[in-house]
Computed example of a mutant assay.
Amino acid sequence: MTSLNVNRWSAQSENRSWLRGPHGTEPGANANITLDIPAFAGLHPNGFIPSGILVGKITASEKFGPYDPAAVDGTEAPAGFLFSSLPVADGQTVVGGALFDHGYVNADRLPVDSGKGALDEAARTALTHIIFD
């Protein structure tokens, strides 16, 4: 019997305009990370966490959340940028991704201008393997 059920899913075209070149994007250059989805509340309004969000490692869980200089859970120390946009489903608590932690970044094209996940002067200084324009 043929199924006539309708399946829906969302797609988003990748926007890595924040990268200034291919250095650090080669296969195997990015570490695998696990994101703590509840920590990204408000940063995925269209069902995707965009690439280029600055992340830090949550000490207690070893998962990653958006960089927050006011935090005391480990995310106050920037680790790098989310390399690829990731879909987030309702109720999902973790998702795997890749960490961009060395290379060249066009800071003006990062997806978050202020607040959690945004680049500030302290993060620029801490990310010694990333060269910003």
Rank of each mutant, 00 (worst) to 15 (best):
I53T: 11
G28T: 08
H44E: 02
F132A: 09
Y67R: 06
K57L: 14
L86A: 11
R124V: 10
G42R: 00
S13F: 10
G96K: 13
G52P: 01
P66Q: 08
S114Q: 01
F132V: 05
V105H: 02
N106W: 10
L110G: 06
F83G: 07
K57Q: 15
P69H: 08
G97V: 04
T93P: 10
S10I: 14
V112Q: 11
S114L: 01
T128I: 15
L4Q: 13
A71E: 05
D90Q: 11
D133V: 04
L54G: 07
A29W: 10
S61H: 00
T34M: 12
G103W: 03
A29M: 11
G28I: 07
N15Y: 01
A31D: 14
G117Y: 07
G115R: 06
H102S: 09
T34N: 12
A71M: 07
L110N: 07
S61C: 02
S51G: 15
G24Q: 04
P38M: 10
L35H: 08
L86W: 06
A77F: 12
K63H: 14
P111F: 03
E26K: 13
K57R: 15
S61F: 03
A122C: 00
F100S: 03
N5P: 02
G103S: 02
G52K: 07
K57N: 15
K57T: 12
D133F: 06
D101V: 02
L127S: 06
G65E: 05
E121Q: 15
D120S: 04
H129T: 12
L19D: 04
S84F: 11
N46L: 13
F81K: 00
G117S: 08
P78M: 05
T2R: 15
N15P: 09
I37K: 00
G115Y: 01
R109N: 11
